[in-house]
Design a binder for these strands. Structure first.
Length: 330
DNA sequence: AATGATGCCAACCGCTCCTCA
DNA sequence: ATGAGGAGCGGTTGGCATCAT
């Protein structure tokens, strides 16, 4: 079995830049046969002159079924704003709340649209905006002493817990715990309307054979995934006084395609995205540990890597949030 | 119509995390 | 306990598209 080309290795001719339809077909064919994962084998097995990382990225950000493209809806926008306020620039975690969007898409959308919008809003009608809103990013840590950083983290954890607690409370008028000065967005708690993939959101394949290649691959469940209807297997987990209804994510996907791509993009639109891959590590740490241990010690590796769905109390759009199971006890 | 400025986004890079031997 | 290698994440970049002048 050949070694996969590293992304930077003089001895390998690694192709970079935009992917061609032919490369996409090769990658999709591989995933169809083997499932996503084991990316290091992909270049050797497919003959692609790409590094494994590039293959994974292309799949997760572009070719993976279930990705919605096109404009973000108002609801999605509000969710991103709330989640960014809550989680910081943890795009993967934010993306897990928007199953049809990739972290890259959300990150780009934030950087190109929302950041400006937020700045404008925070400046407000009175123009009292005093600078960049502090974000709980890891990079900000480097400018603080350890003590400062730990205190800041403790505060962040407390705020995050409170916000999540609020978010999970059905009766709470402001479920994401958004500060009042951002009440322009507090209607997030209204039930989210399901956004069916409209023709405008669907991108045609410029290579229809990809659609044929993909047809049915998601219908075949992967070995590790249970096939069942969404929400039929509901559990309850508790941690630090917070508890959640959870249900095993369904895995009943179909792939569909439509015409009208403005670019060489393929829209793969299953009813459900692939299972799992929640990346709410930080959130999980906040939930699983008390403040002191969260600050002083890293979280023990989690034994169970299964994925759960959180039953969020405010509408369909938020109800299917991936959440990595914290324990084996369910 | 030509040209420069700006916006957008797919892809890359470098780092950290995770797993496993 | 530890180190190596793979996977994943967030920041950044490069190039194309669109807009403004």
């Amino acid at each position: 079995m050949g070694r996969s080309p590293p992304c930077s290795d003089e001895n390998w001719v690694v192709k970079k830049g935009p992917w061609t339809p032919e490369e996409d077909i090769a990658l999709v064919s591989y995933v169809q046969q083997h499932g996503p994962g084991n990316w290091r084998f992909v270049p050797a097995k497919t003959g692609l002159l790409r590094c494994s990382k590039s293959c994974r990225l292309r799949w997760t950000n572009y070719l993976r079924p279930g990705i919605k493209r096109g404009n973000f809806t108002d609801q999605e926008e509000k969710m991103i704003i709330h989640l960014q306020a809550l989680l910081g620039n943890r795009w993967a975690a934010i993306a897990s709340y928007l199953p049809e969007r990739t972290d890259n898409d959300i990150k780009n959308y934030w950087n190109t649209h929302l950041r400006k919008k937020i700045r404008k809003l925070e400046a407000g009608p009175y123009g009292n905006y005093s600078g960049e809103r502090p974000e709980p990013t890891s990079t900000s840590r480097s400018n603080m002493s350890r003590g400062q950083w730990e205190r800041r983290l403790q505060t962040d954890i407390g705020m995050a817990k409170q916000a999540l607690s609020d978010a999970l409370s059905v009766d709470h008028p402001n479920p994401m715990g958004v500060p009042n000065n951002r009440n322009a967005f507090t209607d997030i708690h209204k039930p989210l309307q399901h956004q069916p993939s409209s023709a405008a959101n669907c991108y045609a394949s410029s290579a229809h054979n990809i659609s044929r290649l993909l047809e049915g691959w998601m219908k075949k469940p992967l070995e590790t995934v249970k096939v069942e209807e969404a929400g039929t297997n509901t559990n309850r987990i508790s941690s630090n006084g917070l508890s959640y209804n959870t249900s095993v994510q369904s895995y009943n996907s179909e792939v569909s395609y439509s015409e009208g791509s403005p670019k060489n993009e393929y829209d793969l639109t299953p009813e459900r995205r692939e299972n799992g891959k929640s990346s709410l590590r930080t959130l999980e740490k906040w939930l699983l540990l008390d403040e002191e241990s969260a600050v002083m010690a890293p979280l023990e590796p989690q034994g169970n890597r299964g994925s759960l769905m959180m039953d969020m109390p405010f509408g369909e759009g938020l109800s299917n949030c991936a959440y990595r199971a914290p324990t084996n006890n369910y």
